[in-house]
């Protein structure tokens, strides 16, 4: 009856051990929900509430603070185009406007074929290749209307699957294990080592 599938279940179990308090796993867990369902489903948020010992209202309240989380279904590809200052100065608004036509969806909307959701984003920190475009949080590093159209065409044709995973997939590299250091032991050791050092240095200074 578990909400997460087996592969993610293991990652969830590990995540919960990485932090001194379980609620800290909130954001990574929500990313996993989005990876599994494409957006934050009620069931997914319910599961995160259970795992982090919070209420669904808190999970939803937390999730809705962050732009990357979608509480409603989105297209297969979430296309983000930056119009912030650096991109604006070199044509970000124009590219966004162009994209509404190419993708067939208004800003904030999803195309009829369910393929694209278009978003205006704030600065994506890649400003030397402006205007900046991200698709499913992968930089496509394309700046002109023509190259943008080419990318859209590729996606429609099912190409670029390697480069651009399904929406929600954030980190494809798994952490290679939980915490390794024995933290209680360390704290004790440190205290002893420190007092020894202090003793020595006070002796030296004499």
């Amino acid at each position: 009856m578990s909400y997460f599938d087996d592969n993610r279940r293991a990652r969830v179990d590990e995540l919960l051990t990485l932090y001194p308090r379980v609620r800290s796993a909130m954001l990574p867990l929500l990313h996993l929900v989005q990876e599994q369902d494409g957006y934050l489903t009620d069931e997914g948020m319910g599961e995160v509430a259970r795992l982090t010992n919070t209420t669904i209202a808190e999970v939803r309240g937390t999730a809705s603070f962050y732009d990357m989380f979608h509480l409603e279904p989105v297209g297969r590809y979430v296309v983000g185009i930056c119009t912030n200052i650096a991109c604006m100065l070199v044509g970000g608004d124009e590219l966004l406007e162009h994209a509404t036509r190419t993708l067939g969806c208004p800003v904030g909307g999803t195309s009829e074929d369910g393929l694209f959701t278009l978003e205006e984003t704030e600065c994506l920190a890649d400003c030397d290749i402006a205007p900046v475009v991200q698709i499913n949080h992968r930089y496509v590093r394309t700046t002109t209307p023509d190259t943008f159209d080419q990318v859209a065409e590729d996606l429609r044709a099912g190409r670029r699957g390697e480069e651009i995973p399904p929406h929600g997939t954030l980190i494809r590299v798994r952490r290679s294990g939980g915490l390794r250091a024995d933290h209680d032991e360390i704290i004790a050791e440190r205290a002893t080592a420190k007092s020894a050092r202090e003793a020595r240095s006070s002796q030296e200074s004499k």
């Binding site: 909130m26 954001l27 309240g61 937390t62 603070f65 732009d67 915490l179 933290h183």
Partner: peptide, 29 residues
């Protein structure tokens, strides 16, 4: 000994402000 954990944010400029970042790291808004 040291453990290092990579923690992903989720899209909020304010989380660059250090105390907000700490809240986000605690799993909150």
């Amino acid at each position: 000994s040291l453990d290092l954990v990579v923690h992903p944010g989720a899209g909020a400029y304010i989380c660059g402000e250090e105390t907000s970042l700490i809240e986000a790291l605690e799993g909150k808004r």
